[in-house]
Computed example of a mutant assay.
Amino acid sequence: MGYISELFNEEEVTHAFEVIKQLRTHLTKDQYLDLVTDSIKDDGYRMFGMYEGSEIVAVLAFQPMTTLYYGRYIWITDLVVDEAWRSKDYGARLLSYIETWAEEQGYDCIALSSDLKKERAHQFYTDKMDYDKVSYVFKKSL
């Protein structure tokens, strides 16, 4: 049932846009590529894709971070499964893969935020993946 691979080059990152845009609907392909390129270069941003054949069916992206609150941790910035492939365990498999990767790399934990309206996603994280709700994330647009 599929395989997971890190997305390294522009072709692979571009291929993931069709899935990412289902989560990040406000981004054009050019904006997406600019942001990903800058984040890889400046922030250690990494992307992994879940494949079925040559098709990317799920994408997970993260940034390694260090804070006084979490210590050394992985901040998941994006996790999305293509609509046509949802409810087939791809999200769980991809997240579990990253959890194992992070543990092997010596990270203390994984953290993420999720839109307040995405109750199914919250259930996925808390009930299926055993994540704790520990805070609210606040934002102010400038």
Rank of each mutant, 00 (worst) to 15 (best):
I20D: 02
Q22D: 15
Q22P: 05
L23I: 06
L23P: 01
L23S: 05
R24G: 01
R24N: 06
T25R: 13
H26T: 11
H26A: 12
H26P: 00
L27Q: 15
T28S: 14
K29V: 13
D30N: 15
D34K: 11
L35H: 10
L35I: 12
L35W: 09
T37P: 07
T37R: 15
T37I: 08
T37H: 15
T37C: 11
D38S: 14
I40L: 07
K41L: 13
D42T: 07
D42W: 04
D42L: 10
D42I: 01
D43N: 05
G44I: 06
Y45T: 02
Y45L: 04
R46I: 03
F48W: 14
F48C: 06
G49F: 12
G49Q: 12
G53S: 12
G53M: 09
S54E: 14
E55L: 06
I56L: 13
A58F: 07
V59Q: 05
V59F: 09
L60C: 06
L60G: 02
L60S: 02
A61M: 08
P64T: 08
P64G: 01
P64I: 02
P64H: 01
P64D: 03
M65D: 04
M65L: 09
M65E: 09
T66F: 07
T67P: 01
L68K: 07
Y70L: 01
G71R: 01
G71M: 00
Y73E: 08
I74N: 00
I74L: 05
I76D: 05
I76G: 05
D78P: 03
D78Y: 02
D78W: 02
D78T: 10
D78G: 02
L79V: 12
L79I: 13
L79D: 01
V81Y: 01
D82Y: 00
D82H: 12
D82Q: 03
E83S: 13
A84P: 00
R86T: 07
S87W: 07
K88S: 09
K88W: 08
